[in-house]
Amino acid sequence: MTFGADASGLGSAGAEHIFWWRRDIRPGVTAAFTQVSAGNLAFHVGTDDDGVRRHRAALAVAAGVDRVRYMEQEHGDRSVWAEGSGDLPVADALLSRGLPVAVMVADCVPILLAGEFPDGRPALGAVHAGRAGLAAGIVASAVDALREAGAQGIEAWIGPSICGRCYEVPAALRDEIEGKVPGTASTTSWGTPALDLSAGVEAQLDGLGVPVHKDAMACTFQEPRLFSHRRAPGEGRFAGVVWAHG
């Protein structure tokens, strides 16, 4: 789950400081999720914009890239391509043909996608699946956009999010989301209605024929090394990042 001896990249204390989990997921492609010690990566949280810039720059250095592309997430179903979309596109899925792309979360489900185009270029995606976006169809939007562009062999890596034993919601909301995304209804460890968003993500990916990898998963609410809006509102956002190299 955490940055381990088999992880790719720096293998140093600096890399461990930045990454919760990091792996070479395909030849020439790496995926990673950051942690609290990497710092807040979101400008819309807190007031320390200079700190966010430093944290983003440190992440790029640790990944060995010039910069990472981010998006302005809106809990919708819009997928855009990083190539030609400007510096901060409004979307909940950022796709690329090799450019480093990121999703920021602090309880929502981060999904990293990787496949290949017929010409050998990598097909990459970073997806933000919150409750509303999941119900709106962001998972299918991202996968369909990659496939429509010719991507093949797409696989998904689900990152840390609040688990179904901790994400308490009103019973009516649980039933509403379950009606739109079967498999999300859950119960907290203390016996109240809840949602399991990662289970819903996995079910949708299975339905799309996309293999799912879950070794990066953890509960953000329970794990202090990860940001959680439910546990500590306004503290920060960590990122899921996927990029091509070599």
Rank of each mutant, 00 (worst) to 15 (best):
D49P: 00
F43C: 03
G240Y: 08
G179K: 06
V45D: 05
P170H: 02
C108Q: 12
G11P: 07
T30S: 15
A15R: 00
A13P: 03
T188D: 09
C163A: 14
T188P: 10
A145D: 15
E235K: 11
E16P: 00
R56C: 07
A132R: 14
A38T: 01
E83F: 04
S198E: 13
A32S: 09
Q73N: 09
R97E: 10
G207K: 11
G84W: 14
P170S: 06
G125T: 10
H17V: 00
H55W: 01
L88R: 14
G133H: 05
I138F: 03
D206I: 04
G46A: 05
P233Q: 05
P211I: 01
M217R: 15
G236E: 02
G133C: 04
V65S: 03
Y70A: 00
D87G: 14
A216V: 01
A199Y: 08
A185V: 03
A232Y: 04
G84D: 12
P193H: 04
G234T: 08
R174C: 11
L173K: 11
L197Q: 11
G4R: 13
G130I: 01
L99D: 12
T30I: 01
A129Q: 09
A194T: 00
D77T: 13
S96F: 04
E223F: 07
M71C: 07
E148Q: 15
S141A: 15
G125C: 09
A218V: 06
W157F: 15
A7K: 04
P224H: 10
R22V: 05
G125D: 08
L173Q: 13
Q35K: 15
M71N: 01
E74K: 13
R67C: 03
S79G: 12
L124V: 06
L10W: 07
P224S: 11
L208F: 08
E176G: 01
V68A: 06
A15V: 00
G98E: 04
P233G: 09
V52R: 01
F117P: 00
V139W: 04
G240R: 05
V241L: 12
A38M: 03
P110A: 09
R97C: 06
G4A: 15
C163D: 15
A126C: 09
V201F: 06
S12R: 15
A135G: 14
A102Y: 05
M1I: 06
L10T: 10
C219G: 08
S85E: 13
D215W: 02
V181D: 02
D50Y: 03
